[in-house]
């Protein structure tokens, strides 16, 4: 299985500013002082050796994650703004040849559905789109965001065949060659996490999920949901202290709780996701380094790999 991140930012899409880009250029040029960058290869090698937060960016699209289980159908988690470039990539690859999409929605808050009106394949007859979720209001929410006066193009203009499928926690579903289960999560209006299993590999997508530190039974339930997963894509939006103080009940979690749950569940890799919009690339890189250190000093079993999602990142399992 392969996972490709099209949108990794939480709550609101963001973009680098001119000042941000300038800061990266200044940092790169400072690092180049005294070096001989005589040809393109030398320049490329130098750039490739720069820290990610200097040479790259975590990106700014809101939640949209692609899973490739190995079949011809497309599988997505959430319809954040990242689904727009995903749709463009599909069109570039297939042109107008009809495709089938399976889209799992964590919840219907705006940042997780806002990309649908800009998902070009949804306007093309012949494409088939299955939209899965645990919420009764799923279809209503997607239709409403395109209703006047919020958007000029009504949902009815989407000419692909679109089918909404209500899923229930505790049930196993066979979809796109995968075994799919879901779990209700603590978030305003509820959210759902998904576990996808195929070919002996398993991925958990768990975003917009707050974890109560006062409810051990709830924590145990998530440990079982994560149990021995190859990859857990986890809402690590806040620091622990923020998540349980000034941002308590905001519906999100922290890097610390992500590591603790994954360590207990003997997960192979934790990928931090749904980044705080106010966090700079430098801040997110620091959080990644800190989280790796936290995993290292608290490790009691097998190592837990720690990554931090960025737009364009791919993980092969």
């Amino acid at each position: 299985m392969r996972v490709r991140f099209w949108g990794t930012r939480g709550s609101l899409p963001v973009a680098l500013t001119a000042a941000d880009v300038r800061g990266k250029i200044v940092a790169a040029l400072r690092g180049a002082a005294g070096r001989t960058l005589a040809d393109d290869d030398a320049v490329e090698r130098y750039v490739d050796g720069l820290p990610f937060d200097v040479a790259g960016t975590f990106g700014g699209h809101s939640s949209c994650v692609e899973i490739e289980p190995g079949g011809s159908d497309y599988v997505l988690c959430d319809l954040g703004s990242g689904v727009r470039p995903f749709g463009q990539a599909v069109l570039a690859k297939h042109g107008g040849v009809p495709q089938t999409f399976h889209i799992f929605i964590s919840h219907v808050h705006w940042d997780h559905i806002m990309g649908l009106p800009f998902f070009t394949p949804a306007y093309i007859p012949g494409n088939r789109i299955f939209i899965y979720g645990g919420h009764a209001v799923l279809e209503e929410a997607l239709r409403r965001q395109q209703a006047r006066p919020s958007f000029p193009v009504d949902f009815a203009a989407l000419r692909a065949t679109i089918e909404f499928v209500r899923l229930e926690p505790g049930t196993h579903y066979a979809i796109a060659g995968m075994d799919v289960t879901l779990k209700k999560q603590r978030h305003a209006g509820d959210s759902y996490g998904y576990r996808f299993a195929s070919g002996g590999k398993s991925i958990v997508y768990t975003t917009d999920s707050e974890h109560s530190l006062a409810d051990m039974k709830e924590a145990d339930g998530f440990v079982e949901f994560f149990r021995a997963a190859d990859l857990v894509i986890f809402d690590a939006m806040y620091s622990l202290v923020d998540a349980i103080s000034v941002k308590a009940d905001w519906g999100h979690s922290s890097n610390i709780v992500g590591v603790e749950l994954c360590q207990r569940a003997e997960v192979a890799q934790l990928c931090m996701f749904h980044h705080e919009p106010a966090s700079s690339d430098e801040t997110l890189a620091k959080v990644l380094a800190d989280t790796r250190r936290f995993e290292e000093i608290t490790r009691t079993g097998a190592p837990l790999a720690i990554t931090s999602a960025y737009d364009g990142m791919e993980i092969d399992l």
Partner: peptide, 15 residues
């Protein structure tokens, strides 16, 4: 030292 690091990484040293 390890516990101090946990305070720092969790940002509890801020409060």
């Amino acid at each position: 030292p390890m516990v101090r690091e946990i305070f720092e990484i969790s940002r509890f040293n801020m409060i």
